Simulated scan of single mutants.
Amino acid sequence: MIVRLPPPEWAPHQAMWIGFPSDPELWLDDLGPAQAEVAELARALHANGRGEEIRLVAANESAAEVASQLAPFASVLPEPFGDVWLRDTGPIVTGSRAERWAQGFGFNGWGGKYDLPGDDSIGERLATTAELPYAKAGWVLEGGAIEGDGTGTVLTTEQCLLNPNRNPDLGRQEIGELLARDLGFERVVWLGDGLLNDHTDGHVDNLARFVAPGRVALPVAGADDPNAAVYADAAARLRAAGLEVVPLPSPGRVERGGEIIPASYMNFLIGNAAVVVPIYGATNDEAAVRVVQQLFPDRLAIGLSADHILTGGGSFHCISQQIPA
């Protein structure tokens, strides 16, 4: 099989898979509100038909019925899974219009933290529903751990991809070779740590995002920001790699239940017609959405609350995976 780079997220999409919160035992009192937040995300991306086809993935028939009621414009796929984080458990669709396939990887519950039935097989099943050939690589990789710009450069963090709880026998060189073999990436830019208290061990999609080839959006620390040192280190590494750093406000210190959460505007999701930014009721919410609008003038930047989705540990980018056109 000839490896071609996955298109960057801003390239046209055929459709978007979005995980729909389904398990009352996992989500407790947040289940209904989280479902409503996901429906609002889907509505923004669909944009009354101007965006992309939305495929909501629900783990059981009860959740599928709710999804159909909240988002009648979307396709609903009842497919068992452990939880909604399809950026990590779903396949990465790559290739060209003439030959596309779904590339899967090993999944071990983010280093053994959350081993839930169905998460290790949902990628292949989604590929089947999309009638895409499926290939699975024999090493552990979550989609949220990498960020490409379509030119062969990929960002990741040492905290995640060099973590012994993923691939203990693989070092920096071996992982670079595997990223080249399986996804066509020619250059790996290694950042250091991810955000404080990020249970994914520092996924890059919560820290730094490509907004154009060679241009990376990165938070600027505010007052009392628990991730100030992380942002400064990432900026230095990106500039040393010859990449342009575009500053985006940080929400700063955000707490829920007395605990600092890994709140970031970087978990925005780029659709065909809209870019949806998670907001937190923080001082910089509106400023962050304005900057994202400037970065994507051909799309509408929309800020939406993800407070209830966040109780599960992620946000809009984490629960989605695009199918490129």
Rank of each mutant, 00 (worst) to 15 (best):
D307H: 14
D233A: 08
L45F: 00
N48A: 15
Q69I: 00
V254G: 02
A235S: 12
T153I: 11
A64M: 05
G109A: 14
E79F: 04
G104L: 15
V211S: 01
S315V: 10
L45G: 00
E177G: 09
P168N: 07
D83C: 10
D29I: 02
G257H: 11
G95K: 04
E286M: 12
A59W: 05
P278H: 14
R256C: 02
T128Q: 13
R50N: 15
I54P: 05
H203W: 09
N167Q: 07
T311W: 05
D29Q: 12
L300Y: 01
G184F: 14
A42P: 15
L45M: 05
A287H: 13
G106T: 03
D115E: 11
P324G: 04
R100V: 12
Q159F: 15
R239A: 04
G143W: 10
P247T: 08
A241Y: 04
R239H: 08
V289S: 01
F316V: 00
G19A: 15
G138Y: 07
P168A: 13
E174N: 09
P213H: 07
R55S: 06
A217T: 02
P249M: 07
W110H: 09
A228R: 13
Q69S: 05
M16W: 03
Y134I: 09
S75T: 10
D198E: 10
V275F: 01
A180V: 07
S68K: 15
M16P: 00
A15R: 09
Q14K: 05
P133H: 02
A127Q: 05
L26Q: 15
P249K: 12
E40H: 14
A63E: 07
G176V: 03
W101H: 13
W17L: 08
A64G: 09
P213T: 10
A287N: 10
I122N: 11
P12I: 10
T94I: 01
G214K: 01
F20T: 13
A15C: 00
R239F: 05
G184D: 11
S22W: 02
E174P: 01
G313I: 13
A235P: 01
L77W: 11
F316S: 00
L162H: 05
G104H: 08
N272R: 09
W17H: 06
S68L: 13
N108W: 11
E9M: 08
G106I: 06
E131F: 01
H308E: 12
L179R: 03
G222H: 03
L70S: 13
Q173K: 02
A102L: 01
L179D: 03
Y231G: 04
Q294D: 15
A39E: 13
R50E: 14
G104Q: 11
L31C: 13
V93K: 08
